[in-house]
Design a protein around this nucleic acid. Structure first.
Lengths: 213, 213
DNA sequence: TTTTGTATTAGTGTATACAATTATACAGCA
DNA sequence: TGCTGTATAATTGTATACACTAATACAAAA
């Protein structure tokens, strides 16, 4: 009856470590060991290693003979990520406007309403969460597995930097307004408007996140 | 003296399986098991699993309770991949023209000379290899880890389809000419010309690989 | 004091045994 | 014939023991 989809320890460890690295718990260049992780998390090295292999593939860590070297996301990476997202989410929004179903529209609307709720309450963590949710929905609605797989990791990688941005009240308000504009265009099936609104949104978000030299 | 960099079994298994999946050894939907792989390759399940986890992350396989389900790359994925590459390699070429050193130029030139050599000898496998090498060099020279990590998997995923394309002699000649144009622009440090030449190249390559409905 | 060789230690890499879950085949029954 | 329950088998998930490599500390000699 109740879908008790058990998540493997390896997956849990991956999610946790990825989140901890992306939110800045570990410093760039810091070295950790499988044994420490194993003891800290209370699981054997096997699932730890499977998680680390995936993190290594994402270039979030480097596995050396001295241990696990934390890489994370640098300021330079940030600019590249927003540059790429600007181009690809432009496409994703266009496709989403083309392919969205009534159910998709309802999901987007609900996610926006929740975002509005949290923006009014100045709940930065949940704002960030709903912001991610909205973008992920657009990726999914685009119907392109390739776009989804390409964009989701890029989006996740800016977490640490995005939190500060979202705590800025005026930016939180503006971001919500931009999401609404994107939503309206997708709901109306207006491909060009959706793409353009998304492009502007990514550019604005990037400008607020990237520290200018 | 001799750098005998030992490659772990897990990495070897990953490379091999990835290549076999992308070149079409397994059919979409086919199910294999860890035990079979373990026996076939003569290694224990541990490195097999670590390889499979990475393949799963790339959406090349799906690990279910029935076994490992082969996903691979579909025809629909192809169009998305070339659409994305068109946009991102445009940027990569531009950055490469901006940042290339003399050493980079020499490497690109050498890779082109080899490609020419193999094109003249109609050696499809090696043409494909040198074609990949050229693009990978551009990714690297762009100086963006993010672009590199994003583009390399996308490029690799079209392997199976690219081989047929490269066996077409007129396309092989055209592709070489396009590479030369990209090279000249990068060597000259002409960002816009490099970007434009790359864009045209990707579009042409895509048109030859994608079967029209 | 510096350098070099060696013993030790700390770390990842691999194999194997076992646990848990789920698919499957088959028998019994309606 | 079709359905249902159960036993069996097949598969992935996890833990642990061991192998191997390389970094490190330390002592001895130049």
């Amino acid at each position: 009856m109740f879908e008790h989809k058990t998540i493997s320890l390896a997956d849990q460890v991956f999610e946790r470590l990825e989140s901890e690295i992306l939110t800045g718990k570990y410093n760039r260049g810091e070295i950790i060991t499988e044994l420490h992780l194993s003891e800290d998390l209370g699981v054997s090295r096997t699932p730890i290693r499977e998680a680390l292999r995936r993190l290594e593939q994402e270039h979030l860590v480097d596995i050396s003979t001295k241990g696990i070297v934390i890489i994370g996301v640098s300021e330079e990476d940030l600019e590249d990520i927003y540059m790429i997202r600007e181009r690809l989410e432009f496409i994703a929004a266009s496709l989403a406007a083309e392919k969205r179903t009534e159910k998709d529209i309802a999901e987007l609307r609900e996610s926006l309403e929740l975002q509005q709720y949290y923006v009014e309450r100045r709940d930065a963590d949940r704002i960030k969460f709903m912001d991610s949710k909205f973008h992920e929905l657009v990726y999914r609605i685009s119907g392109s597995t390739v776009l989804y797989d390409t964009l989701l990791p890029l989006h996740n990688k800016v977490q640490k930097f995005r939190k500060a941005s979202v705590q800025n009240e005026s930016r939180a308000d503006a971001s919500l307004a931009e999401h609404k504009r994107i939503f309206e265009a997708i709901a109306a099936g207006d491909k060009d408007a959706a793409a353009e609104a998304m492009k502007i949104h990514i550019i604005n978000a990037g400008n607020h996140v990237i520290k200018k030299g």
